[in-house]
């Protein structure tokens, strides 16, 4: 059994706001193994970005992590490090940009506009490694070249606004990878890109996983992108993981009604006759979380009196698959009984 690179246990995150304490993430647990790509999918407001940011403690100052929550980062030859126990920014440098790097949806907003792309790449290398400026520059240019930016030496001296959207995202990836992180968090990295450029970036990320052997936490709302990149996937709804398993399991035979709903709402290019079926209703406000199963207000198969009162436990399936649904639990119990 391989030791997980990162192990998230019972992560619960609340935000203190004027309107009271808001639960953004509740009882979320998952492991990522070295070299594994894990997808995190869900609608806006499902808590996927908040979960990912917690791995680097990047959430805002009003964030309250539940005392029972643990985020354990594996370290060679040492006890795993609990990221949430780190309080000082100085200590967090081991994690931020060290063991874990992150790339964001909007690369224009992630680069400082008045500093050259190269200077920003060099700066983080000087902070996180023992490299000299000359070495850092050489590595940065090499990385820009590696991610397919033509004429990397000249591009190194340019500003982010001189890059096209696709090129900015490549530069972002080059920068995130230059410190050789063991985990890359990619938060909707292809959402703002055209399909053709998205295909290029996905190919690039796949290559990099095999070359560098790092793990990726891939956040997206696009199940097609997940199908093409991830090994396993967790589906989030209103702060909870409702279903997780291998990509093949979850996409080919979704068990949770929410996962099924997401797939039915998706236009499929191979089946133009299929009706688009929206998941009924809107995602409830996090201030007004439904009791019982969080999905019961929109669930077409909710069991009255059960789903509205009891939080569903995870039913285990083959290959480590987990589903939090009362109906699935019942079916499994019936199957055992007969």
């Amino acid at each position: 059994m391989t030791t997980p690179l990162i192990s998230v246990k019972d992560l619960t995150i609340r935000f203190r706001t004027d309107e009271g304490l808001i639960t953004a993430v509740e009882d979320v647990s998952f492991d990522i193994l070295p070299g594994q790509v894990m997808g995190l999918v869900g609608e806006s407001g499902s808590g996927k970005s908040v979960t990912a940011k917690a791995l680097m403690q990047l959430n805002a100052g009003n964030t309250r992590y539940d005392p029972a929550s643990k985020i354990l980062l594996d370290r060679p030859e040492r006890e795993p490090l609990d990221v949430l126990s780190l309080k000082r920014d100085r200590d967090l440098r081991v994690v931020r940009g060290g063991a874990i790097s992150m790339i964001f949806q909007e690369p224009m907003a992630s680069f400082a506009p008045a500093i050259t792309v190269g200077e920003q790449m060099v700066e983080q290398l000087l902070i996180h490694t023992a490299m000299s400026r000359v070495q850092a520059k050489a590595l940065s240019i090499e990385m820009l070249d590696r991610v397919g930016i033509p004429d990397a030496g000249r591009r190194f001296g340019q500003y982010a606004f001189e890059f096209s959207g696709g090129m900015r995202q490549r530069a972002m990836i080059a920068m995130a990878l230059s410190t050789k992180p063991r985990l890359l968090i990619a938060d909707e990295p292809t959402t703002a890109l055209d399909v053709t450029i998205q295909a290029q970036v996905i190919d690039l990320m796949k290559d990099l996983v095999s070359d560098f052997g790092m793990a990726i936490l891939f956040i997206t709302h696009d199940l097609g992108v997940i199908a093409q990149t991830a090994d396993k996937v967790a589906v989030m709804y209103l702060g909870r993981i409702v279903e997780k398993g291998t990509v093949r399991q979850v996409i080919k035979t979704p068990l949770h009604p929410y996962t099924q709903g997401l797939l039915n709402a998706l236009p499929k290019i191979n089946d133009l006759e299929a009706e688009l079926t929206p998941v009924p209703g809107d995602i409830p406000s996090p201030l007004d979380r439904p009791p019982g199963c969080v999905f019961n207000t929109r669930c077409p198969v909710a069991i009255a009196g059960v789903c509205t009162t009891q939080v569903p436990r995870y039913s285990e399936g083959e290959g480590g698959r987990k589903v939090a649904c009362h109906l699935v639990e019942r079916h499994q119990a019936e199957a055992v009984a007969t």
Partner: peptide, 25 residues
């Protein structure tokens, strides 16, 4: 045809072997 083949397939076994466009507009 290139736009069509760039759509990520929902089938994990369909390993996008279709033609990919190089470069940008």
């Amino acid at each position: 045809s290139a736009l069509l083949s760039a759509i990520p397939s929902l089938d994990p076994d369909d390993a996008g072997n279709a033609q990919k466009l190089e470069g940008e507009i």
